[in-house]
Write a protein that binds this DNA or RNA. Structure first.
Lengths: 159, 159
DNA sequence: TTTAAAGTTGACTTTAAAGTAAGGTTTCGC
DNA sequence: GCGAAACCTTACTTTAAAGTCAACTTTAAA
């Protein structure tokens, strides 16, 4: 139940675009990849997925790049995660029918609704968060870290 | 952000034990594996993990088997998932320090708190659910499916 | 005390995800 | 138009997780 590498870096790239969105500038693959510490090829793959899903828009040719398809405040995390996850698999249980009487449909079983419910809980939690909210959180964390740095420096000065 | 095979089948095995807990009987690896449609070796691996984590207890020797270490109502899903997940990785971002000024600690970066927050949201949601609650949900689903079967039969009888 | 049932452990094989690479296509500036 | 910049697409390689196998250890009953 942990976040996958594709989900994490895809989300990071979207946050890059969300920051750039304020100034209206486009970001190229090289810029995105460089800032995230991943290869241009990998960034291209992620952006292709996000583009196909309609979360970002691309401008081809020289002076091209990527930008968000919608305002950051209208992009919810459950949409992002669902897109980057590929096809959502509700259960790993295959051909379970017949083992228990509770199984009434081929490839289905009584426990599967439980798994589905878990995914819905996660989905609901993620649907409450937007990209712009993440940017706010990030800003607060940065301020906190900066404060820690200052406190640390003062402590060292006293010593 | 999907459930892994190990998490799903580990949870399934725990539910088996939770059902057996009512009658006080022990379940052998062969029984658990057979009911879940997985190999005995795989079931043994899962139960070893759960045993090491203190969620189940084993009785060795002839007439042996497994049972829950605590009542099903006291086992929360976040504990189960955390155990079956192995070491929780908060972020896939390695050696990110230096790429952005926001990185103040080795191997840490400004976006990581966002990932941590996501995991906490999931963890909180899972901590609200116990094994016994899942059994209740399952019973309701079974009843619903049974009702559908009856309705279907009546419809067929009319035709 | 012997024996068989049952759990334990580590090595091996398989499989799916992640990342990489290369060529193709589109667009803008000159 | 011509070329360079930038995105698009498919195929390949690498790597980590999952599952399997086989030998070992422990336990309890006869």
């Amino acid at each position: 139940m942990k976040i996958s590498a594709q989900e994490e870096f895809g989300l990071r790239c979207l946050l890059q675009l969300a920051r750039a969105d304020a100034t209206g500038e486009l970001l190229t693959l090289a810029q995105i990849a460089g800032r995230e510490g991943i290869s241009v090829a990998n960034a291209g793959k992620l952006m292709w997925i996000l583009n196909k899903a309609g979360l970002v828009q691309s401008q081809r040719g020289i002076k091209g790049g990527y930008h968000l398809a919608r305002p950051a405040s209208e992009i919810h995390l459950n949409q992002v995660i669902r897109v980057l996850d590929g096809e959502r698999v509700d259960s790993h249980c295959k051909s379970y029918a017949g083992v228990l009487d509770a199984c009434v449909h081929t490839g289905d079983c009584g426990i599967r609704p439980v798994i589905v419910e878990l995914h819905q809980i996660v989905d609901n939690a993620l649907s409450e968060i937007t990209l712009s909210q993440l940017l706010d959180t990030e800003a607060n964390v940065d301020a906190t870290l900066h404060q820690i740095q200052i406190t640390k420096q003062r402590t060292e000065q006293r010593a």
